[in-house]
């Protein structure tokens, strides 16, 4: 951080006031279980005992305010509900432009996760596209969503709008 030095005869008008704090953040119980399963190539959800909705990752039900019960295995196949096409470069990008970032409702879940869609030309991305997780090899998996390289088309027929319109 550098600041042009004020001239010695000019009044001070600004000062640097940096704040740097280091934390060790905890993923908590539910996300720890979820990310542990991701390393094993499994996706976990949780079912709200009140509204019966299945959340991925498992978490307290945000509409009912109650704890979820159990770890529900969720399919790694799903449907693209909505998406965007990224055409601008930014730092840390790993995908070749343009690429598709999508909201994906996995089979058995009631809320979407967000991930990359690959194996398809960006201009062919569409709502209703059936996709599956392309897992990295077990030795390369870490407790992050990057253990799924991307979602890729399954080749199945597109899902009908009525089957996922609730999740938009």
């Amino acid at each position: 951080m550098s600041e042009p030095k004020p001239k010695q005869d000019e009044p001070i008008k600004r000062m640097l006031a940096p704040v740097r704090l280091e934390f060790t953040v905890s993923a908590g119980r539910d996300k720890t279980a979820f990310l542990g399963a991701i390393i094993e190539g499994r996706i976990l959800g949780g079912r709200c005992p009140s509204c019966r909705k299945v959340y991925v990752p498992p978490r307290g039900c945000p509409t009912c305010g109650v704890e979820m019960v159990g770890d529900i295995p969720i399919s790694d196949h799903g449907v693209v509900t909505t998406f965007c096409t990224v055409s601008i470069p930014f730092e840390g990008q790993t995908m070749k432009l343009p690429y598709v970032y999508a909201s994906i409702v996995l089979d058995g879940a009631d809320v979407p996760i967000f991930h990359l869609v690959d194996g398809i030309d960006a201009k062919d991305a569409r709502m209703g596209l059936r996709v599956r997780a392309d897992w990295r090899p077990p030795a390369e998996r870490k407790p992050t969503m990057e253990s799924i390289r991307a979602f890729v088309p399954t080749g199945e027929p597109d899902a009908a709008f009525d089957t996922y319109k609730e999740h938009l």
Partner: peptide, 12 residues
């Protein structure tokens, strides 16, 4: 080892 929401939920 809980996150904030996990601490709160049972208490609320």
């Amino acid at each position: 080892e809980l996150d904030e929401t996990e601490m709160l939920l049972p208490v609320i």
